[in-house]
């Protein structure tokens, strides 16, 4: 099988790390070789963050370059356009309809860009999801990240892996149920 490349992008504090942990654990259990790379440090202070997960029979490089990702999952709307050049022209973009204004926008210097989702939809296979709204309906906006994981799993045809048991292993007991609900809701949403 050809190696698959997943690129998760967002803003520091959005929970991409837990998602990549669940994802890579599941892929490993399914028998794939897995490599994952993320950048720590300055990104924790509200900067743009990215995580790359690669899986297949034998993975060498932990990172990808431009035009390499099979799927781009953007936890924040504007981040999708920052990272779009990493997506294959025939890849899938999953975009969370959720705006987090960055410092130049907060200070009133620049307006949040309009029409990001429309612009990307014209270029590539795009799935839009409002994970904030879904997680709010579930009763905890903190599971927005796992809603997006659900959308990712469905889009990459990885639904055969026993994600529920992995969530049970990796998430604190009292949050297991809501995370499983979030995962399922994400799968249904795309």
């Amino acid at each position: 099988m050809k190696i698959k490349n997943i690129l998760l992008v967002g803003v520091g504090g959005q929970g991409t790390i837990l998602v990549s942990k669940i994802l890579s654990t599941g892929l490993l259990q399914a028998g794939y070789d897995v490599k994952m790379s993320e950048i720590h440090g300055m990104a924790q202070r509200g900067g743009s963050v990215s995580t790359q997960v690669r899986y297949g029979e034998k993975v060498h490089s932990p990172i990808i370059g431009i035009g390499d990702a099979d799927i781009l999952v953007s936890f924040e709307t504007m981040e999708s356009i920052r990272w779009l050049e990493f997506l294959k022209p025939d890849g899938i973009a999953v975009i969370n309809e959720h705006e987090i204004p960055s410092a130049p926008i907060l200070s009133g210097k620049i307006a949040y860009p309009k029409g990001v989702i429309e612009a990307i939809s014209e270029k590539v296979n795009t799935k839009v999801i409002n994970a904030a709204e879904i997680s709010e309906k579930l009763g905890n906006t903190k599971v927005m990240n796992v809603v997006l994981l659900g959308a990712l799993i469905k889009s990459m045809n990885l639904t055969d892996i026993d994600w529920e048991s992995i969530i049970k292993d990796l998430v604190k007991d009292k949050f297991v149920e809501i995370n499983i609900k979030a995962l399922n809701a994400g799968m249904e949403a795309v």
């Binding site: 924790q44 509200g46 920052r82 779009l84 997506l87 294959k88 022209p89 960055s102 990307i120």
Partner: peptide, 18 residues
């Protein structure tokens, strides 16, 4: 080089750490 999607990169506003 791999083919990439052609688009206007300047749309994204910077997100420096704060």
């Amino acid at each position: 080089q791999k083919p990439t999607i052609d688009y206007d990169k300047n749309v994204a506003v910077g997100r420096p750490p704060t």
